[in-house]
Design a protein around this nucleic acid. Structure first.
Lengths: 143, 143
DNA sequence: TTTTAATCAGATAATTTTATCTGATTATGA
DNA sequence: TCATAATCAGATAAAATTATCTGATTAAAA
């Protein structure tokens, strides 16, 4: 079992990318998100609720309720979603699983792997959702 | 929850690195590995048994039993251990969790993330255990 | 006001991963 | 041969993750 991000985080990113690709202010129900992205409805609803707590999206209750992007997509980075759902420990922990791995007490691959981790973090920090709209919609069409 | 490799894989890599740092042909019990690396004894024993099936290490039963490196450390790469324990799906699957992500039907970050994945795979493929002996022993001293 | 469809929060269930236990088998040394 | 300490394989248990269920609350429309 190897995974980069949790299922929760993957679904969360997919859903937020989808919301960000909608017109500003659009409200989308968890049922639609579930259907469009082919992911579990109740689970994504729960995930989106926690993302609402993080301020990345908003929600409205009631008959015409749903979720929507709370900020301009140019202000939301992929790393924000990762941080809200999974946290950032992955970018600080030892790939070999050694505890307390640091420049002072490095594991055998500390430098090489550390560089990759930094690159990954930077990639996720540079990708804002406005830049991914079209690609997102293109991908969703293939599901 | 984010993780690069499973706990199983992490422990497996730690243990094989430790074995590779011993003199050629040395047999080490799972009890010693557990004690030195501060990891669960029965679990690492099980993991090492599966690595024995992969040909990376050997085992001897009986009173003076234990595990040892089956090949020259210069012939074992970190990716071999990863492949034996976790498999290589991580290097082929979509970071956003989209199914069937490919160059033909790419997810929004397919190119950038794909490059990072390739780098990670290459890093693990280049690191042979002979090169990591000293650093491994240095790290273990800090546990 | 009522109906309806949505979010919400907590509980429950299913599945997977991590870890430990148990008894059998093995090989060394006395 | 026996005692001992090890691997071995399967079973069991605990913990974590994934997923679904349940009933309460909310808000729009009739």
């Amino acid at each position: 079992m190897t995974v980069i991000f949790s299922k929760k985080c993957e679904y969360g990113m997919q859903a937020v990318l989808y919301l960000a690709a909608q017109d500003k202010g659009t409200v989308v129900s968890s049922e639609e998100i579930s259907r469009v992205l082919k992911i579990p409805k109740e689970f994504i609803s729960k995930i989106l609720q926690s993302l609402r707590d993080s301020g990345i999206i908003f929600s409205t209750k009631g008959k015409s309720g749903g979720f929507g992007i709370a900020k301009d997509p140019s202000e939301i980075k992929l790393i924000d979603i990762v941080e809200a759902i999974d946290g950032l420990e992955m970018f600080n922990s030892c790939v070999l699983g050694f505890p307390e791995c640091s420049p002072e007490t490095p594991c055998p691959v500390h430098d090489s792997w550390g560089a990759l981790r930094t690159q990954a973090y930077e990639m996720l920090s540079v990708e804002t959702l406005d830049k991914l709209k079209e690609k997102t919609l293109n991908k969703i069409r293939t599901l």
